[in-house]
Design a protein around this nucleic acid. Sequence first.
DNA 1: TAAATAAAAGATTTTTTTGTCTTTTATTAT
DNA 2: ATAATAAAAGACAAAAAAATCTTTTATTTA
Lengths: 141, 141
Amino acid sequence: MFSQACKYAIRAVLYLAVHASAGKKVGVKDIAAALDVPKYFLAKILQQLSRNNLISSTKGPSGGFYLSEKNLEATLKEVVECIDGPDVFNACILGLPVCSSENPCPLHIQAFAYREGLHYQLKHQAIGDLAKRIEREEQKI
Amino acid sequence: MFSQACKYAIRAVLYLAVHASAGKKVGVKDIAAALDVPKYFLAKILQQLSRNNLISSTKGPSGGFYLSEKNLEATLKEVVECIDGPDVFNACILGLPVCSSENPCPLHIQAFAYREGLHYQLKHQAIGDLAKRIEREEQKI
DNA sequence: TAAATAAAAGATTTTTTTGTCTTTTATTAT
DNA sequence: ATAATAAAAGACAAAAAAATCTTTTATTTA
Ligand code: FES
Ligand code: FES
């Protein structure tokens, strides 16, 4: 479903939503250590998210990454599409050129439900709200 | 979700279920052409399925691949796991070391629900029955 | 202003996946 | 038996994804 880079991206964004803020930025090194993820690879991913204004950062001492108020209002759908491209939620599970309910492949019905359920949550839940739930329910990242 | 190899495997098996039989075997070249899939790569995949007794084959003139009665009773779950390994349906969508409802990641609920939906169909539907539905509903492969 | 810090950017390497080609082996039909 | 056929197996190449290292740029604190 998601590339390795995308998995790291989602986890890093959620980590920032929970543990960082404009007043308490956190560096790649710390994030990588907390998530047990390759440091340099994560840095690349964070740069890409930053370029696309999905996360915020400042350089220099006491710098690092965090989510602005604006960033917290975005959704994971945007994060996912930033890393894995815009077709993640529209592609046929068998790799056929188009996915459609009118002309479905044999796995379409289940696959479509699978994707849409996930897609719906990722599209409609703000990252900030998700973070609150993670803290409330003590979910792992 | 599925690797490219696995997608080809599923499609090839379904193609065989619909178009081949013990009396009418079909060669890699024909399958590859029909599915528009790289010939030599498909050959590798079919060999692996054959070694694991998920499809049948004979060499030589008028030889080729087909599904025996036994093969038709197997499920796509077995095909998938033969190619992509046994963890496909148990892995956390974020790549966390374990996926469990007791200690879920933030995407677990959706991911699990729909993954299980797919898993259930692939596990409980015999390939032969699936093939009948494909013919009945004229689904694409 | 200078030194220290941390992200941004660029270049490279490694690993995995995908795809190709060649040789061998088994089977069949002549 | 022999020739033709097609899968099996092995070796190889290309492309993509993942991971690493180095240099540059911006920022802050002393
Ligand atoms: S057509 Fe294959 S998943 Fe929709
Ligand atoms: S724990 Fe992540 S999908 Fe189940």
